[in-house]
């Protein structure tokens, strides 16, 4: 199960990288980056998964005394929670900058934006 989720995450990262490297349209590159971002999050969550255990929430079925033996690792989940939110912020920033680039050159083709090229 963990391997399956992890393999899916790695495949998503590769798809995202492929899209970012081969597409020339900036909007498509941004979409590709968000796909890779989801892949990274999936891999991180998969690392915390442990077979036969349950979510890290204490209740009647998971009393505090047995928690250590019953729950999966909560740390990657806390990490991914952070990563998802920051990912949204980064995506919004990329979109805003792509708007600015379009405004300047009237094109979203990355090969036409050559100011930083050497």
């Amino acid at each position: 199960m963990a391997h399956l989720a992890m393999a899916t995450g790695f495949i998503l990262i590769l798809i995202g990288f492929y899209g970012a490297l081969t597409n020339r349209n900036i909007l498509r590159m941004i979409v590709a980056f968000t796909v890779a971002d989801s892949g990274v999050n999936l891999v991180l969550v998969a690392v915390g998964y442990m077979r036969g255990r349950t979510a890290p929430i204490l209740d009647n079925t998971v009393p505090a005394a047995e928690a250590a033996a019953r729950i999966i690792d909560p740390v990657p989940q806390a990490l991914v929670l952070t990563a998802i939110v920051i990912g949204v912020g980064v995506t919004a920033l990329m979109l805003a900058y792509s708007y600015k680039l379009y405004e300047k050159k009237r094109t979203l083709d990355i090969t036409k934006h050559t100011e930083l090229k050497w």
């Binding site: 890290p56 929430i57 204490l58 505090a64 928690a67 250590a68 729950i71 909560p74 806390a78």
Partner: peptide
């Protein structure tokens, strides 16, 4: 393990995350 063992007593939150 530290978080799993101590959260209920130290913090009192049911959701460890």
């Amino acid at each position: 393990r530290y978080y799993a063992d101590r959260t209920a007593a130290d913090i009192g939150a049911a959701n460890i995350v």
